[in-house]
Structure formats: structure tokens, C-alpha cells
Design a protein around this nucleic acid. Structure first.
Lengths: 345, 345
DNA sequence: TCCCGGTGTCGTCGACCCATCATAGGAATG
DNA sequence: CATTCCTATGATGGGTCGACGACACCGGGA
């Protein structure tokens, strides 16, 4: 390449990277020769020399057997999409990597040169995260990490505020006894949300009505929904913490002959758009994964490039309650929901 | 590192990689020192020297503004998940890269050292693909590429057979006039499916009833569905080529007071699970994206490692018709729906 | 018994991968 | 001769690979 253009290797490098002080003539000449030859500088060599690969790892904690769940849940999917997009805008690409597992996926981690890593819902003592931080590779977490887990920065929703707001909304719609469908896992999201619920109950003087189940068991949710509505102290409103809870609760309500929203108000936390078209449409709490994904990437790249000195390392983002029919008992002819609902009673 | 263990750099390399001929004592000694120091060989240096990065590019052709759609459609999402998983199993990781766009995303492509690339639904003259192939980097395509687009290998469904089978199924269920909701784009999937439909019509002597619309316009689908059912020669069965067609057609049928499946049989091509719980459940044609994703990766890695000499470069995979209520008019209490393959593929 | 080539095992050397960066060098100019 | 301005030189990053050197042990011939 250098020979073809009749200049030195350095000149080629400088010309292509816009560095050094070269006359425009040389620069464009080198560029045209490179173009003609289809020459591309070796990414590997550049990475070796500069120490920057332009690659960011992305990993999602998984529960089941499959090593990857980043497409299975709408939250992860949208978060990953936004993150990929934001990274691209700043010249980085995302590498999908497996969360730690017993199969020791370490090798694959050390086989790729990363400038930084995004971790979604890290487990409390993720060895990969520890290892990366020890190596000086910044890690930004989506979801508040355990205190024992060192990360460069993290982003999370204000789950407490979200739950409080949503419970207030239900109460305003006339709910007297609000139930909670939650997980029996100890992850931060579940813990914070449940605590916020209990505190809210205490404040307004309501006895908590809680059913919990192993959140990663797809069938257990339906059973727990059923249990909740079968209780003697049956709630007249329910908040489901997980994505499938909406349909599960709707099905359970149908089984018990409860009309939504007349007999039962419903809200669930979900990013899925199907709840806009269920019968009736269900009010959802959106965690705004897109915004989170974008923020996580900005924080991470700032850390990588050392350009975000002043930015906070802990960022709490607001959520968004999308109010639909299922949580509005009052006249509510002001329904701003789907204009085309076939008005089936 | 080499100094700490009291051996040469080469010995460290050999010990850690299990190469060379070293006594077990030396090997384990080096390993323990490396462990203690937390030493990891530089991925960049290894890549530079060996020419292998262990990285595979993944890109999805996009239509809209957003540079990434790999999570938006169930097909892409599942395909990507399976591919990631399969790659991991063989020691590779996937890098998400943008499809070519006017914003010239070339730079990001040449900034990462790839061993190979998976392209989902490549456009007819994708310059990135051409460039990669010219550089000797294997490219495997999901979806039959245009003849002008050179790829190492491709995998696709047998769309013609799928359409024939599904039309036969509808006819067996009593359909007299089957309509088609299709796209007016020229991509291979649409073209093959539409042609197969027309040929089938000719064979059985039915006049084609076709409505087409720009498939990437989310609203146009509903309108086209409406148009189809408003025609004077209204079909008594419809096949929708795209994922949202099922709900669109269902909604349209409701507006016209058509009962499904009594007045209208419905099938659509989709990977979405929501069609199992619609009212009524809708028969879907699954393209088995998981199986495709896995196959694509196997072919690609075989090409990279030069180990798949005998394997065909063009692989056509069967589809799966998941029969549900919407396409069974007769007594049909004998629901013979697909025996629920545990998605092992 | 002594010396020497033969055989084999371990471990090290040096080249190499290919850009990038700091600095030295050379030409043109004042 | 000093100053600019441009370009070449050489070191550098950190492994990997082919080839060679060091060393121990063996048996055979002198």
C-alpha cells in the first residue's frame, strides 16, 4: 500500500486518519490509492497499538438453560436495540457475550478485546464483572448492582416512585384493596418494588395482599395470579410486577367472572405492545428501556474515553405509566385509548 | 509474566494454550502463576498474529430509520438468539453491526476484525457484503441472496413448498377462494411466496385474490386487510405473509361481522406466540428461525475453519405449519396441531 | 574405559503480524 | 545559517510460530 502510493507507511496512516500535518494533495492521493486498492487498515493491529478496540460487551443475566435471553423479553430487546444504536452513533459496536455460567464462559470473554462492558441485571457476585473491573475495563450496569459488586456506573429506574405513583393512580380510580403479584427472587427490582408496595400500604392503612412466585417459571405466574384472585381477601385491583402477569391476571379474572376494570383494576409492568390491544387494553408501567440503554452507553463511553468526568455514576431514571382501560373504573368516557376498539360491550 | 514464572514468553504461550511439548510440571507452574497474577493474554495481539478474532458480524437489513431491527420482529430476534448461542458453543461471539446505510457505516465495519459475517435478508447489492467477500471474509446469508450478490453460503426456507402446503391445508378445511395479503416489495420472500400462490391458484383453477401493500409500513397492513375483505369477490380464506397480518385480518373480519373460522379461514406467517391466545387462536406458518440461525452459524464457522468441505453452500429448510382454530372449519375436535417440538433446534 | 554420534526432551530465539506515535531527518524558504 | 514544513525512520504493542540450542542419556567402536 505504502509502496503503491509512493509514500511511507506513516504517511498512509496519517493521511487515512486525518492526523499529522500533510499537504492536502498527499492526503487525497493516498486516499484515492487506498480506495483503488480496496485497502483497509488492520483492525487488529490498530487495536494492539492503540489499546482501543471500539468494542463494547453486552451481557444479560439469565436464569434458564439458554445462554441468551436478550431477545426474549421486550425490556431486554428494546434496551439492547437502543444500546446498539447509541453505541454505533459514537463509533462503537456491541459484542453479545454470555453471562457467567457454570460452563465457565470465561475464555470467550478474554478472547475478545473490549473497551468496556454493559451488564444488564448483574448477579450479586458476578465474577466476570469483578475480573473486568480489576483489569481496568469499565463496566456499566443496567440495574442497581449489589453493594459488593464494583461497577463504574449504573443506571436504574426509580422503582419506588414508580410503584407509589401507580398505586396512587389505582387508588384514585377507586381501588380499595390493591394486591401485588410479585417474584420470590431477591433481585433488586423485585425487592425495591415489593418494599415500596408494603410501605405504601402502611401509609394508607391497607393490609398488604401479596402473592409471590418464582419469576422465571413461565407457568407459575398463571397459578399465582389464580391464587391471588381466589383469596378470601380478594383485592379489587392488582399490580403485576412481571411482563406476562397482565395476560395471566386477565385470564384468571375471566375464570372468576370478574370484569376488568369494573370488578378488578389491573396494571402490570411491561414493555409489550400487546397490552394495547387486549380486551380490555391493560395499563402498563413502562421502564423506558430505550432511554436506559442509551444512558448506559453514554456513561460507559464517557468512562472509556475519560470524557465524562463530571457525570454521576449513579443515575436514576423515571418510568412511564401508560394508562389504559384496565385501570380506569370511573366514567372514563374520556378514554384516550385505541380509537378503533370494536366496542364489544 | 514470563519473568514472574521464570520462563520465556514462548513457554508461557505454549503452556497456556496447551501447545508445544512441555512437561506437565512446567505447564501447571505457568498456569498457577498466571492465575495468581490474573494474567490474561492480549486478545488484540493474538488476533494480530493468528489472523483470527473469534468474532462474527451479524447484521439485519433494515427499512426504517432506526439502524437496528434485530429485536423488533420475532423472527429476527429468535434467529439472532439462536445464532448467538450456536456461535458461543463453537467459541465465537457475535458483533452487532448496522446494515449499509446512506450514513456510510463502513468505518465501523472496517474497525472490527471479523472472521466472518452473517447477513439477514441482504439487499440486492449490499456493498458491505461485496467488500467482505472481496477481502476473503466468508459471508453466510439468511435468505436467498440476489444472483448478483456473492456469498459463501446461504440458508433459506422452502417458501414455495410452505405456501403450497398451507394453501392445501386451507382447501382441505373447505376454503373455496383463498386470498393473499402480500407486500409490494421485491424481496425474495415476498416474491417466492406470491409466485407460489399464483401457481397454486392456476393449478386448482382459482382466480387469485391479492392485496398488496408496503410491508414496512405498520399502518398499511390494516388498511390492506380491510381492502381485501371489502372486495366484491371476497375470499373465504386468507393467508397473510407478514407477522402483523393475523391481528389485522382478525380485526378487519370483526368489522365486517365475519366469524373466524366459520366465515373466514385465517393463516399468517409469524413467529409470535400471541397467536396462540388470540380469539380465536390463529394458525401460523413458522419459518423456524432458531433452526435457521443455528444452521447459518454452522455453515459460516465451517467456512471460516475450512472444516466443512463437503457441506452444501445452499441449504433449504422446511417450515412448520402450526394449525390452530382459525384454519379449521370442520368438526375439528381432533386438533392435530403440531406435536409441540420442544424447540430443541 | 573413553570418546563420539545418535536420540529425545525441554525450552528459548528471533522473526513476524501491522498500524501508530514520537522523533529524527531532509528539503525548501527567509 | 536558522526556520518551517513535510516525510521517513525506528521503536512499540503482545502474543504465536517455525526452527534451533542446550542438555541428558544411550550404545557402539577404539
Amino acid at each position: 500500500m505504502a509502496a503503491a502510493a509512493g509514500v511511507s507507511i506513516t504517511t498512509v496512516s496519517d493521511a487515512l486518519n486525518g492526523k499529522g500535518r500533510l499537504p492536502e494533495a498527499t492526503r487525497s492521493h493516498v486516499r484515492s490509492v487506498a480506495e483503488r486498492l480496496g485497502y483497509r487498515p488492520s483492525a487488529a493491529a490498530r487495536t494492539l497499538r492503540t489499546g482501543k478496540s471500539g468494542l463494547i460487551g453486552l451481557t444479560v443475566t439469565t436464569y434458564g438453560e439458554e445462554p441468551f435471553t436478550f431477545t426474549e423479553f421486550a425490556y431486554f430487546a428494546e434496551m439492547a436495540r437502543a444500546a446498539t444504536s447509541a453505541a454505533l452513533a459514537r463509533g462503537y459496536a456491541l459484542v453479545i457475550l454470555p453471562a457467567t455460567s457454570r460452563h465457565s464462559a470465561f475464555d470467550i470473554w478474554s478472547n475478545v478485546a473490549l473497551d468496556g462492558t454493559v451488564v444488564i441485571d448483574p448477579s450479586d457476585h458476578d465474577p466476570v464483572v469483578t475480573e473486568l473491573m480489576r483489569s481496568g475495563i469499565p463496566v456499566v450496569s443496567d440495574g442497581r448492582p449489589a453493594a459488593s459488586l464494583p461497577v463504574t456506573a449504573w443506571v436504574d429506574n426509580d422503582h419506588e416512585a414508580a410503584v407509589r405513583g401507580l398505586l396512587d393512580h389505582l387508588a384514585e380510580s377507586g381501588a380499595r384493596r390493591i394486591g401485588l403479584l410479585t417474584g420470590n427472587t431477591t433481585d433488586t427490582y423485585t425487592r425495591l418494588s415489593t418494599t415500596a408496595y408494603l410501605q405504601w400500604c402502611e401509609r394508607v392503612g391497607q393490609d398488604p395482599v401479596v402473592e409471590s412466585y418464582p419469576a422465571h417459571d413461565p407457568c407459575a405466574g398463571a397459578v399465582a395470579a389464580d391464587r391471588l384472585l381466589a383469596r378470601p381477601d380478594r383485592p379489587d385491583a392488582v399490580y403485576g410486577l412481571f411482563d406476562p402477569n397482565g395476560t395471566d391476571l386477565l385470564a384468571a379474572a375471566r375464570r372468576y367472572g370478574l370484569r376488568v376494570p369494573d370488578d378488578l383494576l389491573l396494571v402490570c409492568c411491561s414493555e409489550s405492545t400487546v397490552y394495547a390491544t387486549t380486551e380490555p387494553p391493560i395499563t402498563t408501567l413502562s421502564l423506558k428501556p430505550g432511554r436506559i440503554g442509551n444512558t448506559v452507553i453514554q456513561l460507559l463511553i464517557d468512562a472509556i474515553e475519560g470524557s465524562g468526568g463530571g457525570r454521576p455514576v449513579e443515575q436514576v431514571m423515571p418510568t412511564d405509566l401508560i394508562v389504559r382501560t384496565s385501570s380506569q373504573r370511573l366514567p372514563s368516557r374520556t378514554t384516550v385509548s385505541a380509537p378503533r376498539s370494536p366496542a364489544a360491550d
